[in-house]
Amino acid sequence: MRQGGSPISVSTDPREASAGRNASGNLLEVTDLKTYFKTMDGVVKAVDGIDMAIAPGKTLGVVGESGCGKSVTSLSIMRLVDLPGWIAGGQIKFDGKDLVKLSEEEMRHIRGNKISMIFQEPMTSLNPVFTVGNQVGEAIRVHRKVSKSEAEARVVDLFRMVGIPSPERRVKDYPHNMSGGMRQRVMIAMALALQPSLLIADEPTTALDVTIQAQILELIKDLRTKVNTAVLLITHDIGVVAEMADEVIVMYTGKVVEQGDVMSVLRNPKHPYTVGLLSSIPSLGVKNQRLNVIPGTVPSPLNLPKGCTFAPRCPHVMGICHEQEPPLKTLEGGVKAKCWLY
């Protein structure tokens, strides 16, 4: 904090992004996104028609269990889905442009520059044979016309900003010289190197210990206010969402089942899946109370049940649930839920 300000000489406040913002004032608008994967046994609809929007400086949390499609959503926005997967439909409006329609060349200007991403595994997302300083510097040199020494100086500033002690020395380290928390800081420094208007954080703290997680979350919060970056936060940890996000989306089998502001969704969940998910977390200080259980397991994406895909596990299941898929309905207070109960 002592260095203050931004290490990068671009003006921070009226963000360039705001110029080309989507008509609605949102930075990112995803409409009816579908991402499918071809497998030997048939087509897996990993993401099957989801909508989401993020305004500048806001944080949208996406929660769900493994296989619900939350990571594929983020990879689709970055256009990092490779065969056998493809974006089968929908729009990803960012800065007024539809990312789905951009060429690979155009997309390269956006990745790392306007939208950047922090991955789950700080152990595997860095190249082990280059110094961390070199890797972060590369991101700057690729997108901005700067000399090598200028890039190096910026990396040192970035490292200082993300709280890496003695940055001048640490830039010369290789990833194996660093702890998990430090590596994740390097990833964040890289993601923020070009001051993106959107930061996608896919389980940014899952591989880290709680005290280190606390440091990283504080860091992301701090940077969000300083740089006004919008954050798409993907996590299975509802505690992290409660703390970080303004809005939250709950996903199940590739679809949004509930959506709304964090306060309403987490304190007064509507969809039976969200209710079950929230009450199956043991919370500190509440003891000797049997944990609520969502019976069964997530169905195979190749063999989804007819109607509502949550019906076989749902305590409130009705006849119609097995027949027809419920729509994502807007309820009182603006929360949306995909359930026949409402």
Binding site: V210, T211, D237, G239, E243, V262, I281
Partner: peptide, 13 residues
Amino acid sequence: KALLSAIPNPDPL
């Protein structure tokens, strides 16, 4: 103390 306070609480309040 630090460990306990570091756990994010699922209740936004």
